[in-house]
């Protein structure tokens, strides 16, 4: 049962009885988090906003079926995962029918080789600044498959527990653990040239630079 202190659940209960103001507050409360989640998931800001709106629309439509048996966040994460999954399926169908998929949905097309090249320090060392780190991490996130990426994003940005991730994604807890384990290894491989502070390791960078030199 959701705790009484869960403001989102309280707002949702008010939405359930037709409180439009509560719905607006709910949107205000969650839109940034959802847009962030979808932005890192799809890599495209417009798509992220569209998906966030889609989630709010589904929340409103499903308001009568809402039961505060769990955290509201778990409920809305489930809807968010479904929306992302539907987008993925639509993109897959478009691809099947010969329609080019949007760049945001083809994030998985970015291979590890490309990430490794970006992170190998082929570019000048001084360009490996924060912006570069963001790009490299974004590419690394994009290299994960959809479930891994969603699990990582829920864990990192929504601070969800294994159980919450499992509930939101319709998976078992061991499956979520396995997802996250493999995602971590994959990310570690892609970001091995950076230390925890985001600074690129000099040895690795130099070695990469030497290897990349003519």
């Amino acid at each position: 049962m959701a705790t009484p202190a869960d403001p989102s659940a309280e707002l949702m209960l008010r939405v359930q009885v037709g409180d439009a103001e509560a719905f607006e507050q709910l949107v205000t409360l969650w839109q940034d988090r959802l847009v962030t989640l979808f932005l890192h998931h799809t890599g495209d800001h417009a798509t992220a906003e569209d998906l966030a709106q889609e989630v709010f629309l589904r929340v409103y439509r499903a308001r009568e079926g809402y039961r505060p048996t769990a955290k509201f966040s778990t409920w809305i994460h489930t809807i968010a995962n479904n929306a992302a999954s539907d987008l993925r399926q639509r993109a897959y169908r478009r691809k099947e029918h010969g329609v080019a998929a949007s760049p945001s949905s083809s994030s998985s097309a970015i291979g590890l080789e490309q990430i490794a090249v970006a992170a190998s320090g082929q570019r000048p060392a001084r360009e490996a600044d924060r912006s570069e780190l963001q790009s490299v991490v974004r590419d690394a996130i994009s290299s994960l498959n959809d479930n891994q990426r969603m699990a990582v994003l829920l864990a990192k940005f929504e601070h969800c527990s294994y159980e919450e991730i499992a509930a939101a994604m319709g998976l078992s807890v061991p499956a979520v653990k396995s997802l996250l384990f493999r995602a971590r290894d994959q990310l570690r491989t892609a970001l091995e040239s950076y230390d925890r502070d985001g600074v690129r390791a000099p040895v690795a960078a130099d070695r990469a630079g030497q290897e990349g030199a003519p």
Partner: peptide, 21 residues
Amino acid sequence: AAGRADQPLPEDPDAAGRIAP
């Protein structure tokens, strides 16, 4: 998709299950 959001959800897990801080 909205219907899928209505599926039963687990109870709020305790803090031990939290992954990220």
